[in-house]
Design a protein around this nucleic acid. Structure first.
Length: 590
RNA sequence: GUGCCCGUAGCUCAGCUGGAUAGAGCGUCGGUCUCCGAAGCCGAAGGUCUCGAGUUCGAAUCUCGACGGGCACGCCA
């Protein structure tokens, strides 16, 4: 990476300047720069391609003006062998103490060559190698449809999984089904009543529970499957039977919907299995063994207050049934025993209050709780015609994920839901998303990719002109030959640049953007923010468009055409890599 | 009442391990196709970064306090 190479150069220059006693109060024997050397892209183009502000940070210790430090360091740089020739065009110093670099084309050309050599692996960091990660997300209750909030959780989890896979982790994606407990019993009661109502029986619908409207479509499917055969069951048996049938239909509905969003789980983990394998009882005895639980008022409590929570929490109610925390502890202990290096849960922010309890439980079990990360995704506010639609299961105004998908399309939904950082809420206006669907960022990025493909097709097609048709510029085997050259000789790319400084700036900007992809990936992984790559893809698309406006790719000069075709191929590759991580398709034409 | 998240252009959002004149998109207004996809590009207008203190040579960024919005505080799940 260029930034690293520059940082190394600055670091050597620092040591050299230091030895010569040019850095004020900083001792001459200091070899390691006491401030981090960060290379950044300046906001303004006249400040060069890259810049380093380390002199500002050293000013305090050196007790001399930052500009003098910058000058002293910059003076050392020209003497390095590596900077001779094509790599660095200029090194200048600017107030208040920045060192500004104007890049030559050496590294840029190597970047393009690198992209083409590495292809779909370009930008892949090595940090995940050999590490196993479990990402648990969505985990919606099997009692109803998925809404847009689930969609956000789903898209975020899926993008994070893609990102970590790209980074070399061995990733498993898991959906935890809460298919036990009181909510399922309640679903059963509602389902059995609605079943009979749909079959013209006059029975009362439970006042407590899920609204009829909400369950109707699922019960209609159940009726279609099983007919009248359960009509005469007792209330108790009917609730169990219809609850199970309805739940199956709902889970299948959720699975199909998620698949439409291009999400496929490796495992659907059932809470019932947890109970059936006595894992909840196990975890309770583990707590006991660690001396972390006690009985009081007929209930069993976990000593979470000792472990950073605000109070102790109940594990087993006086009724004898276990709490959500106990079940969840059992589930997470099971995850630990499966041996992952990292476990990430994606939860809706409305569950943030559970984090201390679960973390406390993991501490109580003596497992390394830092292996468990919980990412909270804030809510999605949907609006329609500018009116906010509140999401409440009790109201008929809920907009379901399926509806949004049908209206806006998978790619746009994934892009919009992936783009924002999880801790920020999203305002998703359906009418706006539809109205601007041709101009939305997802489309724009795809358009850029399609444009690259169109140019490459052009290179292989006969040219039609007013003075008659000309044969196709190149054949497929010509392009294969070019590719071999691109990979082995970065100098072929020298021909792509213009001498006009404004045009040259666009050309360099595009390559520089390709160059920063690996860094973007690294930062996205470290901060668990795949959304950064969505925004990166947009910026790359924008650089391509600017390049395209001023740089004709297919020209009558072979060396120029060859170099620019290579750049187009590289841009297409990186767009595709970035889109792949956020799960948006990269179309050849549109 | 307590805890967590958020507050940046008319709207939607970046930037937040402190650094140069705070950036995009949409919307608005104005340019731009005999030429590889104009679904594009260029330009203009639009900001006391909610407010107030503090730390600092320097704060949208860090600290504290207001104000505003959201969420959570069960022997529910």
């Amino acid at each position: 990476m260029i930034k690293e190479k520059l940082a190394a150069i600055v670091s050597r220059a620092f040591a050299s300047a230091c030895r010569q006693g040019l850095l004020g109060a900083i001792p001459v024997e200091t070899d390691e720069c006491p401030a981090p050397i960060q290379i950044e892209k300046p906001r303004l183009p006249e400040h060069g391609d890259l810049a380093c502000g380390v002199a500002l940070k050293l000013a305090g210790q050196a007790k001399i003006a930052p500009i003098k430090i910058a000058q002293a360091i910059a003076d050392q740089i020209g003497r390095e062998d590596e900077t001779q020739g094509t790599y660095l065009e200029s090194v200048t110093v600017a107030n208040p103490g920045f060192i500004n670099f104007k890049l030559g084309t050496g590294w840029l050309n190597e970047t393009i060559s690198d992209v083409l050599c590495q292809g779909a692996s370009y930008g892949k960091p090595a940090l995940g190698a050999g590490k196993k990660v479990l990402i648990e997300y969505v985990s919606a209750n099997p009692t109803g449809d998925l809404h847009i909030g689930h969609g956000r959780n789903a898209v975020f989890g899926s993008c994070l999984a893609n990102l970590l896979k790209f980074a070399g982790y061995e990733v498993e994606e898991e959906f935890y089904i809460n298919d036990a407990g009181e909510q399922i019993a309640q679903l059963g009661r509602c389902a059995f009543a609605l079943y009979r109502i749909l079959l013209d029986r006059d029975v009362p619908y439970p006042t407590e529970g899920y609204p009829q409207e909400y369950l109707k479509e699922f019960l209609e499917q159940v009726v279609a499957q099983v007919g009248k055969q359960y009509l005469e069951l007792s209330e108790e048996e009917g609730a169990v039977k219809l609850g199970d049938l309805t739940m199956k239909v709902i889970i299948e509905h959720q699975r199909v919907l998620l698949e439409k969003l291009h999400i496929k789980f490796d495992r659907w983990y059932s809470e019932r299995d947890l109970h059936a394998a006595d894992k909840v009882a196990d975890v309770l005895s583990e707590f006991q063994k660690h001396g972390m639980s006690y009985e009081s008022e007929g209930a069993l409590w976990l000593k979470t207050k000792e472990l950073g929570d605000e109070r102790d929490r109940v594990l087993r109610k006086s009724s004898g049934s276990t709490t959500y925390l106990a079940n969840d502890s059992a589930y997470h202990l099971d995850k630990y025993r499966r041996g992952y290096d990292l476990m990430i849960n994606i939860w809706g922010a409305d569950h943030h209050g559970q984090v201390p309890g679960l973390k406390g439980a993991m501490k109580a079990l003596g497992v390394d709780e830092t292996k468990l990360e919980v990412v909270l995704t804030q809510i999605v506010n949907l609006s329609r015609d500018g009116q906010i639609v509140r999401m409440s299961k009790r109201m008929g105004t809920v907009v379901m994920l399926g509806e949004v998908l049908d209206e806006v399309g998978v790619d746009a939904v994934r892009y919009y839901l992936a783009e924002s950082s999880p801790q920020n809420s999203i305002n998703f206006d359906l009418e706006l998303a539809k109205k601007t669907s041709r101009e939305n960022p997802a489309f724009y990025i795809q358009y850029a990719h399609a444009r690259c493909c169109a140019i490459l097709r052009r290179a292989l097609e006969p040219m039609q002109g007013t003075d008659g048709d000309k044969p196709a510029p190149f054949t497929a085997s010509d392009l294969d030959g070019f590719m071999a050259e691109y990979k082995s000789n970065p100098a072929v790319f020298q021909a792509l640049y213009d001498s006009d400084s404004e045009v040259l700036a666009h050309q360099k900007a595009l390559v520089t953007r390709l160059e920063s992809f690996p860094q973007e990936v690294l930062e996205a992984v470290e901060t668990r923010q795949p959304g950064r790559l969505a925004r990166y893809a947009f910026e790359l698309a924008n650089e391509l468009q600017k390049f395209y406006e001023v740089s004709r790719v297919i020209t009558d000069q072979l060396s120029v055409t060859k170099a620019r075709l290579g750049l187009i191929l590289a841009t297409k590759q990186v767009l595709s890599n970035a889109l792949g991580i956020i799960g948006v398709s990269a179309p050849e034409r549109m």
